[in-house]
Design a protein around this nucleic acid. Structure first.
Length: 314
DNA sequence: AACTCAATCAACCGCCTGGAT
DNA sequence: GATCCAGGCGGTTGATTGAGT
């Protein structure tokens, strides 16, 4: 037989977490570390499903989480990665360690999808199948085999370009030191959320009125800024390290248009967007973008860099 | 001030995968 | 090898908040 069930559904509390519950959870994780979620409800006395505990921790209580507005840089990375990986939010989130997959997913669904759609409608009329009318996919249908080979080639080229662009040698040369590698590192002091002091601060946070804190770039929980976490850096250090992009989001897509109008196809049908975008023009576009990124990286002192592990991902 | 509608985001649901038995 | 479950993930929902009228 397998393992016993994780939790029976009866008597399991749902809905928003209370400060008391958070404190119980944080205290427990502080002591035992995350993991073995199954035992968390029983050991803490929380009337929550183990899944709910894990989710609460990973999406909310985990130290080093940056909340609030996404920077242009983050936006750009998300768009990059979404084009490359599709809706694999956890994978995308691994490149933005300060952000949770849930946050990124929400941001994509509420902001970026709209932006892309807006941009797409403003730049190019769509054919009925959702592809650009200028796309070779429409004008010159190719066989699946051909298409897959071209896809492989494109992916390989893009990966190669990205690897070259982000290889440590290049990163070190002319890098001002505020590389994404550093940016991506969890805060050095990001041990588990809370000392007793931090827990009390956490509680204090909830006492404040939420609206006052709304809109601040760093917010850990309603009315609780990351100041309450052990990683004060998340507010100051990360924001400072995150190199402000010279170009705004729009200008990024301005680059798209400048590449080749036939490649500025950012269209996504509802079906397409849920999986990696395998439409050829999109990948060529990405490839060009990646190449473009190289020059940007070299030009502005390391805009997008990845560490070895991240590079190996490709 | 009251109401409506849209935007946001925390949390839930259900599926999938890999590991334990 | 088969079965079962925990953990992880992506999609979706619903409560809350803010903007507009």
């Amino acid at each position: 037989m397998g393992r016993p069930p994780c939790c029976d559904k009866s008597g399991v509390k749902k809905g928003p977490w209370t400060p008391e519950e958070d404190i119980l959870l944080v205290s427990y994780i502080q002591e035992h570390g995350p993991g073995n979620w199954r035992s968390v409800p029983t050991n803490t006395g929380l009337l929550r499903c183990s899944k709910s505990c894990r989710l609460r921790w990973t999406n909310y209580l985990r130290p080093g989480i940056k909340r609030g507005n996404f920077t242009d840089h983050e936006e750009k990375m998300i768009i990059h990665l979404q084009a490359l990986l599709g809706n694999r939010w956890a994978a995308i989130a691994s490149y933005l360690p300060q952000r949770t997959d849930n946050d990124i997913k929400n941001y994509w669904n509420t902001h970026l999808k709209k932006k892309l759609k807006k941009l797409q409608t403003s730049t190019q009329p769509q054919s009925r199948d959702g592809f650009s009318s200028s796309s070779s996919m429409v004008s010159e249908p190719i066989s699946r085999g051909q298409w897959e080979r071209r896809l492989q080639t494109d992916i390989h080229t893009a990966k190669q370009a990205l690897y070259e662009a982000l290889s440590p040698e290049k990163l070190n040369s002319g890098n001002s030191g505020s590389s994404l590698t550093e940016l991506m590192k969890p805060p050095a002091s990001a041990t588990y959320a809370s000392s007793t002091e931090n827990i009390s601060k956490l509680l204090e946070g909830w006492m404040r009125n939420r609206p006052e804190n709304k809109g601040e770039t760093t917010q850990v929980s309603p009315g609780t800024t990351t100041d309450t976490m052990s990683s004060n850096q998340s507010k100051s250090e990360f924001n400072n390290n995150g190199i402000e992009l010279a170009e705004a989001f729009e200008s990024v897509f301005g680059n798209f248009e400048s590449f080749d109008s036939s490649n500025s196809d950012l269209s996504m049908s509802p079906d397409e967007e849920s999986k990696p975008n395998l439409n050829m023009p999109q990948l060529s576009l990405l490839e060009k973008w990646l190449f473009d990124e190289v020059s940007m990286t070299q030009g502005n002192g390391g805009e997008v860099t990845l560490d070895d592990e991240q590079i190996n991902f490709f």
